[in-house]
């Protein structure tokens, strides 16, 4: 079970969280200006990255806050945690 550091509540077991898929997918400002292909891109297409993956989690059993995590999808190592609205850290680990 992963240990995920909620930016507010600190490290908690994975089972307290919900997974929200890939982060930084912005809802188009005017969906109706998009054709079906562009809308489908937003709706369905994800990068499915091997390695450092930026993804959303919500602390459902705790403070109910959504936040972002950079997780290595191979080793499951969590490389960074940051709040919604914050820019994703460049490379490297938390605290470095």
């Amino acid at each position: 079970m992963l240990l995920i550091e909620c930016p507010w509540c600190g490290p908690r077991d994975e089972q307290e969280f919900g997974y929200g898929g890939e982060a930084h997918i912005v809802r188009p400002a005017d969906p109706h200006a998009l054709d079906d292909a562009a809308w489908g891109e937003y709706l369905f297409m994800r990068t499915n990255r091997k390695g450092a993956h930026r993804e959303r989690w919500v602390h459902s059993e705790g403070c109910r806050r959504w936040f972002n995590v950079v997780r290595d999808t191979v080793s499951h190592e969590i490389l960074a945690v940051y709040r919604v609205g914050e820019a994703p850290p460049a490379a490297g680990r938390r605290g470095e």
Binding site: G20, V26, V58, S60, R64, W66, V84
Partner: peptide, 13 residues
Amino acid sequence: LAWLEEWRQTEWP
């Protein structure tokens, strides 16, 4: 509730 919070927090703060 989680659905409302998701949009409120992540898309429309």
